[in-house]
């Protein structure tokens, strides 16, 4: 699969979900189960992506400079730092550790 195919197919799928919401009966929203699953789905996928992005190296799990970088990011989020500061600080932390080790 090429990058372009991935971009186009994924974009169509994401748009289709948005459009579907305008076409289904509003009563669907009254049922707590679909809403609950959709909200928890976001949390589950993001948590899994954090793990893969922090510890994954292909199909291996490794603990490297990304772990302290994520801890720094968590600390900054806890004090309500802006998103871009959090992201930049994590990149800087990992880069510095790699430079020094």
């Amino acid at each position: 699969m090429t990058s372009w195919q991935i971009i186009i197919l994924a974009s169509i799928a994401v748009f289709a979900l948005k459009l579907a919401g305008y076409l289904v009966p509003p009563s669907l929203l009254e049922r707590p189960r679909p809403a609950r699953i959709a909200n928890l789905m976001t949390v589950a996928l993001l948590a899994a992506l954090i793990v893969v992005q922090t510890l994954g190296a292909g199909t291996r799990i490794v603990f490297d400079a990304r772990v302290p970088a994520l801890i720094v990011a968590a600390g900054l989020l806890a004090v309500r730092a802006p998103f871009i500061v959090v992201v930049a600080a994590a990149a800087t932390t990992a880069a510095l550790i790699r430079l020094l080790t």
């Binding site: 991935i6 197919l9 994924a10 799928a13 994401v14 979900l17 948005k18 459009l19 579907a20 919401g21 305008y22 289904v24 509003p26 669907l28 929203l29 679909p34 809403a35 959709a38 909200n39 789905m41 976001t42 996928l45 993001l46 992506l49």
Partner: peptide
């Protein structure tokens, strides 16, 4: 990649129902 991004987009469908 396509499946993950699609699943992450499911909440947009809920927003759409609300916004319709």
């Amino acid at each position: 990649a396509i499946a993950s991004s699609t699943l992450l987009g499911t909440r947009n469908a809920l927003y759409a129902i609300r916004m319709a």
